[in-house]
Design a protein around this nucleic acid. Structure first.
Length: 551
RNA sequence: UGGGCUAUCGCCAAGCGGUAAGGCACGGGGUUUUGAUCUCCGCAUACCCAGGUUCGAAUCCUGGUAGCCCAGCCA
């Protein structure tokens, strides 16, 4: 279970702390995470999950998972499964799992209660008419001719609605509030609609389904939720939330509190847009490592702890804000820097023959898995006459301050010897295909005598290295706010994925397990792709690069 | 121009009448067999603007300005 150490507070903690002090809700804290099962969870949901479960943990309360499944047209069991999996992966345990549909019968009874009070009525206006009658932001709406239908008639009509005696959309149950309210949500909002759609859980039991505004507050009350945390766009619904509970005199009165939703630079989070990226093949599925979905982040190699850390760092406020990508990246770097084992992988191999190293010799070097953490153990790395280094780590015409290998220069092979480049071998058309070097046998684990060697580069033994495919991912969009474009697809980054199929990784990586994470020294953090990597065909995804203060 | 909400460093964010925390980013020094990590230092006389109250205001009052949200039988 996750324990929370909070660095700075936020307004929701203030409210909850005060409520506990006042013994409101008998000092209890019960929250809920209420996703609609109509899509995959994304990083924005992670913020809400961390908040709701986090408050419950911090205040020794509880948090329910509640599927808000009142619109069967868009929802499915598959989405429920993925949502549960993602929450569990993030490290949270719900106290109870509920569905709004569990309450359909009670909701129906509550609706009848409202009708009996004279606070709801069955309306025969069409959707278009209701829109016209609603008025505008600056003009009051006008009352429906059905508004003063008798309670008895409303009761029998509503019962008939449930019995399936009317076609879809023929009637709607509405709250009777105030058609002149400056808050449009209070202008007799719809409570129930007729919709003959098979529900994933209740099957064909119902042909009328309750609306969000009616369902959510009552569901909260039924579960004894104390603090109903939701995003800012529901703020304007709060008077309705409170109205319903007040009229119904529910035994508990949950308090709705709104916070600003997460906006992350270089990403898009709307379901429609995410679906478009998948359907039009800009990415390879909902769990593509470039997607801001939890599944995508997981496949990219993000850890649950790093995402929780991110959610804690960005804070909770009511202010619209944009979080820079660097914050998320910093969180995963910090985690992986501490915990990922180091390894060597050559992405763009360049062959080196060490001429003074016996060609039939082979050494097994014992190398630390983490330079600062000996407790993470060691691994064995073979060294031999022919090795592979990164193309970039040799320069025929080096830029200023270049400290890797140059002709006639020396460089340290990480965890091995210092070598000197004696000769460049080129093809007829001038391409460098090989380097002839010599090594200083007296530099294994010790500094070379009489000179300083600044550069350190990674390498693998050609004969022992394992083939791997490495996928280099970059941000999916070329501008910070893709939503600001009329067509966000025009700002998709064409270079967001670079697939390298001829990489060579050190032998120890041959038995890496699915999803295992590593730091490939000097190049970044990578994880074994959970879907495509096979024993005979390793695939690594780049989670994030190392910080680079040089280029 | 109806109503609701918001405004503190490039990006986040504490602060709740006693004289601007922290993180990310950025700049610079040190350590280093990863140009990584680690470490040290620097980074808002100032809190959207203008008045006012107060010994004292980012915090209270008044008046502005800007941004976001609401007219689904979506959530």
């Amino acid at each position: 279970m996750i324990s929370e150490t909070s660095s700075s507070s936020n307004f929701i903690r203030h409210i909850i702390s005060q409520d506990i002090k006042d013994n409101k809700h008998n000092g209890k804290v019960i929250t809920r995470f209420p996703p609609e099962p109509n899509g995959y969870l994304h990083i924005g949901h992670a913020k809400s999950i961390c908040l709701n479960f986090g408050m419950a943990i911090e205040y020794k309360g509880s948090c329910n998972l509640r599927f808000d499944d009142t619109n069967p047209e868009k929802e499915s069991i598959e989405f429920m499964h993925s949502i549960e999996q993602d929450i569990a992966w993030l490290g949270f345990n719900w106290s109870y799992k509920y569905h709004s549909s569990d309450y359909f019968e009670q909701l129906f009874e509550y609706a009848i209660e409202l009708i009996k009070q004279g606070n709801a009525y069955v309306d025969s206006l069409s959707a278009e008419q209701i829109r016209e009658y609603r008025g505008t932001l600056t003009e009051a709406g006008k009352e429906s001719p059905d508004r003063n239908r008798s309670i008895e008639e409303n009761l029998s009509l509503f019962a008939a609605m449930r019995q399936g005696e009317f076609t879809d959309g023929h009637y709607v149950l509405r709250a009777k509030i105030d058609m002149a309210s400056p808050n449009i949500n209070m202008r007799d909002p719809a409570l129930y609609r007729i919709k003959r759609v098979h529900h994933q859980r209740t099957g064909d039991d119902w042909c009328i389904y309750p609306m969000y505004d009616f369902t959510h507050c009552i569901s909260d009350a039924i579960e004894g939720i104390t603090h109903s945390l939701c995003t800012l766009e529901f703020e304007i619904h709060r008077p309705l939330y409170d109205w319903v509970l007040e009229k119904l005199q529910t035994t508990t009165q949950p308090q709705q509190i709104e916070f600003a939703r997460l906006q992350l630079e270089y990403t898009v989070v709307s379901k429609r847009k995410l679906a478009q990226l998948v359907n039009e093949n800009f990415v390879n599925g909902w769990d593509d490592p470039r997607m801001p979905t939890i599944a995508g982040l997981r496949r990219a190699g993000y850890t649950p702890a790093s995402i929780r850390d991110f959610c804690e760092r960005i804070g909770i406020t009511k202010k619209d804000s944009w979080i820079e990508m660097g914050v998320l990246e910093n969180c995963i770097r910090e985690d992986l820097n501490d915990n990922a084992h180091r390894a060597m992988a050559v992405l763009h191999p360049l062959r080196i023959v060490i001429e003074n190293y016996p060609n039939d010799q082979e050494e097994i070097l014992e190398v630390s898995n983490h330079p600062q953490k000996p407790e993470l153990g060691t691994r064995k790395i073979p060294f031999s006459q022919v090795i592979l280094i990164e193309k970039d780590d040799f320069a025929e015409n080096p830029p200023a301050k270049y400290k890797r290998l140059v002709e006639g220069g020396e460089v340290r092979l990480r965890s091995a010897y210092v070598i000197k480049c004696n000769k460049i071998i080129k093809t007829e058309d001038g391409k460098i295909i090989e380097l002839r070097c010599s090594y200083d046998a007296n530099t294994l684990g010790k500094k070379p005598e009489g000179r300083k060697v600044k550069g350190v580069i990674h390498w693998v033994s050609e004969h022992h290295a394992v083939n791997a495919e490495i996928r280099l991912y970059d941000r999916l969009f070329t501008i910070a706010n893709p939503e600001s474009k009329d067509d966000f697809l025009t700002v998709v980054n064409p270079d967001s994925l670079q697939t390298l199929t001829h990489c060579k990784v050190e032998a120890s990586l041959g038995n890496a397990k699915a999803s295992q994470r590593f730091q490939f020294e000097r190049t970044g953090y990578f994880c074994v792709d959970a879907v495509d990597s096979k024993a005979d065909k390793l695939v690594f995804n780049r989670t994030v690069t190392l910080r680079d203060t040089w280029s």
